[in-house]
Computed example of a mutant assay.
Amino acid sequence: MTAEAADLPIVGAQDTTPDVVDGLALARLYGEPLFKVPTDLYIPPDALEVFLEAFQGPLDLLLYLIRKQNFNILDIPMADVTRQYLTYVDQIRSRNLELAAEYLLMAAMLIEIKSRMLLPSNKTQEGEEAEDPRAELVRRLLEYEQIKLAAFDLNNVPQLGRDFLHAQVYIEQHTVLHWPQVELIDIQSAWADVLKRATLVQHHKISREELSVREHMTAILRKLQSTRFVEFADLFDPSRGVPVLVVNFIALLELAKETLIEITQAEAFAPIYVRLAYSPA
Results as ranks from 00 to 15, higher is better:
residue 157 V to M: 06
residue 221 L to G: 10
residue 165 L to V: 10
residue 234 D to P: 10
residue 200 L to Q: 15
residue 241 G to P: 12
residue 224 L to F: 13
residue 167 A to Y: 10
residue 188 Q to W: 09
residue 157 V to K: 12
residue 138 V to E: 01
residue 181 Q to N: 06
residue 148 K to R: 08
residue 208 R to G: 08
residue 223 K to T: 10
residue 143 E to A: 12
residue 219 A to E: 15
residue 223 K to G: 05
residue 218 T to K: 13
residue 174 H to S: 03
residue 219 A to V: 06
residue 149 L to K: 13
residue 239 S to A: 10
residue 193 D to V: 04
residue 220 I to A: 09
residue 170 Y to L: 00
residue 186 D to G: 03
residue 183 E to A: 12
residue 158 P to W: 01
residue 196 K to S: 10
residue 172 E to V: 00
residue 145 E to T: 06
residue 148 K to Q: 12
residue 170 Y to T: 00
residue 174 H to T: 03
residue 139 R to F: 08
residue 236 F to E: 06
residue 221 L to A: 09
residue 156 N to R: 13
residue 211 L to M: 08
residue 240 R to C: 00
residue 162 R to N: 02
residue 178 H to E: 14
residue 238 P to V: 03
residue 152 F to Q: 02
residue 225 Q to Y: 07
residue 214 R to C: 01
residue 154 L to S: 11
residue 161 G to K: 03
residue 191 W to N: 07
residue 153 D to E: 14
residue 240 R to G: 04
residue 175 T to Y: 01
residue 158 P to C: 08
residue 161 G to I: 07
residue 235 L to T: 12
residue 140 R to K: 15
residue 230 V to H: 06
residue 190 A to W: 12
residue 218 T to N: 07
residue 168 Q to L: 14
residue 242 V to W: 01
residue 174 H to A: 00
residue 166 H to F: 08
residue 190 A to I: 01
residue 188 Q to Y: 05
residue 145 E to Y: 11
residue 203 H to A: 03
